[in-house]
Simulated scan of single mutants.
Amino acid sequence: MRKSVANYLKAIFEASYLQGGTSNKQIAELLQVAAGSVTEMVTYMESEGLVQRQKYGQIKLSSAGEQAAWKLIYRYRLFEVWLSKTLDLPLLKIPNQAWTLAAVNDELLINRLNIVLAQPTHSPFGGCIQIDERATDELQVLAQINEQQVLTIHSYLEQPDMIQYFQYADLHLGQKLQVIDKNPELQVIALQAADGQKYLLNWRLARYIYVFNH
Score class of each variant (00 low, 15 high):
70 W>S: 10
125 F>G: 03
88 D>G: 04
192 Q>D: 05
170 D>T: 02
178 Q>N: 12
51 V>L: 08
124 P>M: 12
64 A>W: 08
156 Y>K: 09
26 Q>M: 12
39 T>D: 03
30 L>E: 11
19 Q>M: 13
21 G>K: 01
66 E>V: 02
135 A>N: 07
100 T>I: 10
137 D>P: 02
69 A>G: 06
51 V>H: 07
74 Y>W: 14
173 L>A: 06
157 L>P: 03
170 D>V: 00
58 Q>W: 09
12 I>H: 02
49 G>E: 12
79 F>Y: 15
62 S>E: 03
190 A>L: 00
29 E>T: 11
161 D>A: 11
63 S>P: 02
118 A>T: 04
26 Q>L: 12
178 Q>H: 01
90 P>W: 13
125 F>I: 02
29 E>G: 05
64 A>P: 00
109 L>Y: 15
7 N>Q: 15
129 I>R: 07
119 Q>H: 07
171 L>V: 00
187 Q>Y: 03
167 Q>R: 10
24 N>S: 09
145 I>S: 06
182 K>F: 02
24 N>H: 09
128 C>A: 15
157 L>M: 11
11 A>G: 00
64 A>V: 10
132 D>T: 07
32 Q>G: 02
88 D>H: 15
154 H>E: 09
159 Q>N: 01
212 F>S: 13
202 N>S: 05
175 Q>V: 11
24 N>R: 07
45 M>T: 09
205 L>I: 03
172 H>G: 00
115 I>Y: 02
144 Q>H: 07
112 R>G: 02
204 R>M: 03
139 L>G: 05
15 A>G: 05
140 Q>H: 14
143 A>Y: 10
129 I>E: 12
70 W>I: 14
152 T>Q: 15
13 F>D: 06
90 P>Y: 11
78 L>Q: 12
181 D>T: 01
4 S>N: 11
4 S>P: 00
134 R>D: 14
137 D>C: 11
163 I>A: 09
79 F>A: 08
199 Y>D: 04
123 S>V: 03
19 Q>Y: 00
191 L>A: 01
7 N>C: 05
156 Y>I: 09
55 K>E: 15
29 E>D: 12
180 I>Y: 12
60 K>H: 05
159 Q>M: 08
208 Y>D: 06
111 N>E: 14
179 V>Q: 07
80 E>H: 08
85 K>G: 02
42 V>R: 13
83 L>H: 05
23 S>Q: 09
8 Y>G: 00
175 Q>H: 04
191 L>R: 04
201 L>G: 05
81 V>C: 15
16 S>L: 02
36 G>C: 03
123 S>T: 07
160 P>K: 04
125 F>E: 01
212 F>T: 10
155 S>T: 04
11 A>W: 01
212 F>I: 12
34 A>S: 14
189 I>S: 01
184 P>I: 12
65 G>T: 08
125 F>Q: 01
22 T>I: 09
123 S>Y: 08
198 K>N: 06
19 Q>C: 03
48 E>F: 09
210 Y>P: 01
16 S>N: 02
115 I>Q: 12
135 A>L: 15
145 I>G: 03
124 P>N: 05
148 Q>T: 04
175 Q>I: 04
33 V>W: 13
132 D>E: 10
106 D>L: 14
119 Q>V: 01
152 T>S: 13
50 L>K: 08
190 A>W: 07
161 D>M: 12
179 V>T: 06
158 E>W: 13
165 Y>A: 04
150 V>S: 14
186 L>K: 15
204 R>F: 06
143 A>N: 07
10 K>A: 05
73 I>H: 06
39 T>L: 11
186 L>G: 06
164 Q>E: 13
